[in-house]
Amino acid sequence: MNAFVFGLGGGGDVASTYIAMKYLYLKNISSIVGAVTWERYVEDPLPGPICKEDMKNAVVINDVITEVNQSSYAIRNGLTVIPQLVRYLKAMNIDKGYSICIKYGPKSIAEGIADLASRLNTNFIIGVDAGGDVLAKGCEETLGSPLIDFLMLASLVELENMGFNVLLATIGAGSDGELEQEYILKRISEIARNEGLIDIKGIDKDMERDLEIILSNVNTEASRIPFEAFKGLYGEIPIRNGTRKVKVSPISSIMFFLDPKKVAYTSPLYNIVKNSSSLEDANRKLNEVGIYTEYNFELDLYAKFGLNARNVDSEKILQIRSEGRRKLGGLKINC
């Protein structure tokens, strides 16, 4: 038996798929890796996801899925971008993986993944999130990247409704500096009371060497913190060029496996995006309730700095986010 395990939130979330895959290995289940290919602005200043039209040295499976290998790359407005998924393949010497394009709505994304699962002859799918923002409700003022996470959470629910065996895995509670660790743990407890906590797996010594190799190749802060916590890092540390702070403790190295439906049904954000027809539509719906998304931020940053967005200092980053939230008029959502 095998499973399709993918990084759910774009960027470096793919590094955390290794922990889920080791969890499955202990259950005699092999894994095929994938990721939502949406790189942070420091890697790819062009706003939005990387999709089939951007990829080179790759094989298009369908509109949503592109097969990539160790020599794959993307061209974005003339710039060469190496997705973190490709870096993961190189680090682990894996022949191929699968890029997920999320410019579509949840139903279309789920259909694309279902097509891949059929080709891979698997019924088991796990989406992996580093940081835990996928557990947000929408009222959290520090929430900065709800769009990708909730499009993919809604896609996992669609896949579950299709009959697939689906799990949502999250590690590094609060490790991306958006939601506090204690809040993430409280949300997991709420989901557990609704029979939504399926299993728990922490980093162990057997993973240490491979994780070091992965993290020396994959550019990520949120997925690095669980490893550093396992190695003894403790306390509050700055990330994202000092624009955020993260509480790090041994809890940061624990992965929680959850039922996507139980997560979705405890968050208003799921209901906002679940019937979206596209990424743009989902973003618009979130804006209507006063939520400033990572896509809004990238658009605003690019409009002001263009390809130089990769070099913008932390003060300007904070100003752009603050002004973007102000223009939306504040949160209009009940949690």
Rank of each mutant, 00 (worst) to 15 (best):
G177A: 08
V59Y: 12
L301Q: 07
V134L: 05
E323Q: 12
A264L: 09
K103C: 11
E221T: 08
L331R: 15
A114V: 07
I203G: 03
S118M: 09
I148M: 01
F6N: 06
R321C: 01
N311Y: 15
A229T: 07
K56C: 06
N121E: 14
I198Y: 11
I50N: 01
Y98V: 07
G242K: 14
G324E: 09
I148C: 05
L258D: 07
G196C: 05
I100E: 09
F124E: 02
K137H: 05
F227Y: 15
I50K: 01
D176A: 04
N296E: 12
S30Q: 13
S31C: 15
R87A: 01
Y23W: 10
G112V: 09
D13H: 15
Y41H: 13
E180W: 05
K247T: 15
I82V: 15
D281Q: 12
T142M: 05
G242M: 14
S277A: 12
G34R: 04
V36F: 07
N296H: 09
A303F: 05
I213M: 10
R87G: 11
N275E: 13
E228D: 14
E288P: 00
V273G: 07
G12S: 12
M152F: 04
E182W: 02
V64K: 02
E212F: 14
L151G: 03
R87H: 12
V246N: 08
P47A: 03
L279A: 02
A173K: 08
E180C: 05
P106N: 03
F4Q: 08
M21G: 00
G196Y: 07
L215K: 13
K107Q: 07
G127L: 04
G11K: 03
Q70R: 15
N308K: 14
S314N: 10
N217A: 06
Y295R: 04
K245R: 14
D13L: 06
I50P: 01
N62C: 08
W38F: 13
P106R: 06
E280M: 12
L79M: 15
P250M: 08
N121C: 04
D313P: 08
G235C: 09
V36E: 09
N161K: 15
D210M: 14
L85S: 07
L135R: 03
E212T: 04
D281L: 12
L120M: 08
D133R: 05
Y25P: 00
G10W: 11
V59E: 14
K137T: 10
L185P: 03
K332W: 02
G202T: 06
A154W: 12
I75W: 02
S249E: 11
A222G: 02
T122C: 10
D44A: 10
L151H: 10
S267P: 11
P83V: 08
C335L: 01
G127I: 03
I317F: 02
I148Q: 07
C51H: 10
Y234K: 12
I225Y: 06
S322F: 10
P47S: 01
L156I: 11
P260E: 07
A3I: 04
N283V: 06
I61T: 07
L46S: 09
R76F: 11
V157T: 07
